[in-house]
Nucleic acid binder design. Structure first.
Lengths: 334, 334
DNA sequence: CTGTTAGCGCATTCAC
DNA sequence: GTGAATGCGCTAACAG
């Protein structure tokens, strides 16, 4: 039924070792024999069994990817960066959604490890002690992708979320705004939620603006929560002249709430966000945003992982990619 | 170094067969021995090797997924549907982007098969004879996801793209429009491009409207190609009063071109599309579109695949999911 | 209920 | 350059 390396060996009149050699491109094979073997492979339609190979060689040429949610454009972009580089180095990826839920993350990490992946790329919520524990028992390299651990013990590739938020808010301040509200993500999420909130506060502080709790609403990164939060701000007696949203989607939601109330962006209220997804230039006014290089984060983290898997020594196992502010139409001077 | 089933057996004072039994939840084990084994597993930190298991059992509990581009929101949504159901049935997925390029598709199909996936989900461009050839040599079930083959020999899950386009255009016609242009995808793409174009033509024909080549532009599914195409239509002496775009993104591009020219949607020109991605409700005016149930397409195809893998017999291996038109704000009567 | 014995398909020494 | 032998870690009969 299934044709094995033995069948090919018999067909070609050589030993299985030789077949293995030609399949693995081992130079120690006479060109003529190589040819015979290839012909036998062709004739029989032989397809090497990667599972058997994996058991024998202890390498699977597949890496595990733990991702919060592949249907989220931001993460999908990272995933594409990962897959492209993986493909380039002849790795395949097993993708698991974990929705930033700890138990699910731990669970998929373990099944990925059971599947003997050669390495692991982790995108998730907080990296807890339990995560660290699971990572420790893995005998393969791991790199955090679009996250970091507090202790800085695990290799990672990310941007500086706090600084990105800081820069966004400072851009608003530079335009003369002082009453700046924020539509934040959950503060439980250390990377996106909490870090960006911290950046917001620090920017205000640096500018000598006192923090006003009333100017902060917690959203869920999605469009609707942006519209909701903005409606709240619009109802304030002393409403903000600018808003900083933790994600593009929430920013777009905010813009629409503003427009629906008869106000204009950026004339009446400026809006800025962090992400710079494709959508940023697909709305009117086009969104000014701090760009996160999502594709690159994926690509660089996968590249780092390949080095780690090859046991090459890497100097900086903590890479922080640059972010930049992309000025479009949603911010103006006060 | 790595702890195997033998180590656990020795530690628990039983045979490896017994350990295998408890790991695999075989009921034929005395509760007491089961307990002993679990303790030994715990003590040693044993983690079953899925590769070895795969070789012995000839099952890997992983399925291959060939996808055009995971960074495309539409496909990412399908992927999420696939993964959720896969997860539910304890399968993992190996994801490969193939960009609808035939050679790449064939290549990844083969490596997926080498990896001994238990089944294959294929999303791609045209299903050619070469694809069929590759599928035939696979000894595992395959289902086409968001595509179909002409001959109808491979199980598939999709919507009726031709009908979806037909319905969209008819909705325009029902509103009194007769000068209707189309921003199409490439006609080489049988599912999205060609089928939707056919639906457009049939709707015109049915209404007795003569087809005008000048009212059709070919885009690449992306925003920019939508703006470009619309600029062309706007420059026409006798410009259309309605436009049908093959994707949301192109529709949104068209809307912005219209608005930039000083015209209004839908007062001056109506716009409709097929997709109904999240973005459809994130633009102003909100986009009227024929909804494709992308998540469901993924979920249903994965569910179908599990049945096929379990050799359950399925009645309809060709499932066509319903589409529906979601009326929002971008279409009005002429 | 439990242990023994064969492979699964291949990479990899070690000889020749 | 090539072949024979061994084992990767586990499942799956088959006995008992």
């Amino acid at each position: 039924m299934t044709v094995t390396i033995y069948d090919v060996a018999r067909e070609a009149g050589v030993s299985m070792a030789t077949v293995s050699r030609v399949v693995n491109n081992n130079p120690n094979v006479k060109p003529q024999t190589r040819k015979k073997v290839f012909e036998a492979i062709e004739r029989l339609g032989y397809r090497p069994n990667a599972v058997a190979r994996g058991l024998a060689s202890k390498k699977t040429t597949t890496v595990g990817v733990v991702i919060p949610d592949i249907s989220n454009a931001i993460f999908a972009e990272v995933a594409r960066g990962i897959e492209d580089i993986a493909n380039m180095y002849h790795y395949n990826i097993i993708l698991c959604n974990a929705d930033k839920r700890k138990e699910k993350e731990i669970r998929v990490i373990n099944t990925l490890l059971e599947k003997q992946v050669d390495g692991l790329l982790f995108m998730g919520g907080a990296v807890t002690d339990e995560h660290l524990q699971a990572f420790k028992t893995a005998n393969v390299p791991i790199v955090l992708c679009a996250t970091t651990d507090e202790n800085g013990v695990i290799p990672s590739v990310d941007i500086d979320h706090e600084a990105a938020a800081f820069d966004a808010v400072q851009a608003l301040i530079n335009e003369g705004h002082t009453r700046i509200s924020m539509i934040s993500g959950t503060l439980q999420d250390p990377a996106i939620g909490f870090a960006r909130f911290q950046g917001y506060k620090r920017a205000l502080e640096t500018a000598g603006i006192t923090y006003d709790e009333d100017l902060v609403r917690i959203g869920n990164y999605r469009y609707e929560s942006g519209t909701e939060a903005m409606k709240y701000f619009l109802g304030l007696a002393n409403r903000p002249t600018a808003v900083f949203a933790a994600t593009d989607e929430m920013a777009i939601g905010a813009i629409h709430s503003i427009q629906d109330s008869g106000l204009k962006v950026p004339q009446d209220i400026s809006v800025i966000s962090v992400d710079n997804s494709r959508m940023a230039s697909m709305v009117r006014p086009q969104l000014t945003a701090v760009a996160q290089p999502m594709y690159d984060i994926g690509a660089v983290s996968m590249r780092l992982l390949t080095k780690l898997m090859k046991k090459e020594n890497v100097d900086h196992a903590k890479v922080v990619l640059p972010h930049e502010i992309v000025k479009r139409q949603s911010v103006s001077a006060r």
